[in-house]
């Protein structure tokens, strides 16, 4: 296959970036998208140019590192898959592929296609924890959890924090991510203790970081590689409302 690429190149967050055109021959349809970029980088290095910086780690769809905005969609074409799971067979010979980084004020570009997603870590630090007794491991069945509830919590916990929801949202809102992290704890008994405090702290941190507001367009749900549902955003809205109303503290 012969592929034309339009890739966003940006030295760092201070300078302006621009699109650079590349042509890559001998692309195998069996290559993953990241392997194609590896091939491009090998070629660029051999030609004495600077390689395209992109983030990757596990290359099997569970680490959440890779995240490229390909032809107008986070993680490119295909349903419920990450960039590393995207293969070149999804494209045709001679196609032009536009590759951009996640674009959000809260995700500044570090270099080329790599963005700084530490905002997500900040949100998690604000409230994504539970209190447990230190010491010996507790008896596994001392807290009973309904099977459906545990499965629901697990489904939400599959969020890999890749940021595709922010990238897909027309408002660059992080609410799908934040609501997933709130929900995975809020629906389990172990997470109830800090529930009210958690939702307020995490939402406040999200706002502070400059993510947009949710306007219920649900592009996040459509593009989430792990299929996290927007019903979690409603749960967050509910949790936040009750927390604000019930809370003794005036904030």
């Amino acid at each position: 296959m012969n592929i034309k690429l339009k890739i966003w190149r940006q030295e760092n967050s201070k300078v302006k970036g621009k699109f650079i055109d590349y042509v890559l021959d001998n692309v195998s349809p069996g290559m993953s998208f990241l392997e194609m970029l590896d091939a491009l980088n090998t070629k660029l290095i051999q030609e004495g140019g600077s390689p395209v910086a992109f983030e990757h780690d596990c290359r099997e769809g569970i680490c959440g590192s890779c995240g490229l905005y390909i032809n107008g969609r986070p993680h490119g074409p295909g349903e419920k898959s990450t960039t590393c799971e995207l293969h070149m067979r999804s494209f045709k010979d001679g196609d032009t592929i536009i590759v951009e980084p996640w674009r959000a004020k809260a995700f500044p570009v570090i270099r080329d296609l790599i963005v700084d997603r530490s905002g997500f870590d900040e949100i998690l630090k604000a409230g994504g924890f539970i209190s447990v007794n230190a010491g010996a491991a507790p008896e596994a069945n001392s807290i009973l959890v309904n099977k459906e509830v545990s499965e629901e919590a697990f489904d939400v916990a599959t969020c890999i924090g890749c940021g595709a929801c922010v990238a897909a949202c027309k408002n660059a809102s992080a609410m799908l991510f934040v609501s997933a992290k709130i929900s995975q704890l809020a629906i389990l008994p172990q997470g109830k203790v800090e529930a009210a405090q958690r939702v307020q702290a995490m939402v406040a941190k999200m706002d502070e970081l400059g993510f947009g507001n949710c306007t219920n367009t649900y592009a996040c749900e459509a593009e989430c590689p792990k299929g996290i549902k927007v019903i979690n955003i409603a749960r967050m809205n509910r949790e936040f409302f009750t927390a604000k109303v019930v809370s003794q503290k005036t904030t």
Partner: peptide, 22 residues
């Protein structure tokens, strides 16, 4: 605020499976 949350826009905007009216 939503406009401010994405100062640099995409070259190619995404059209996910969402309600067009939204």
């Amino acid at each position: 605020q939503n406009w401010m949350a994405r100062p640099v826009r995409y070259k190619l905007e995404n059209w996910s499976h969402t309600s067009p009216f939204s």
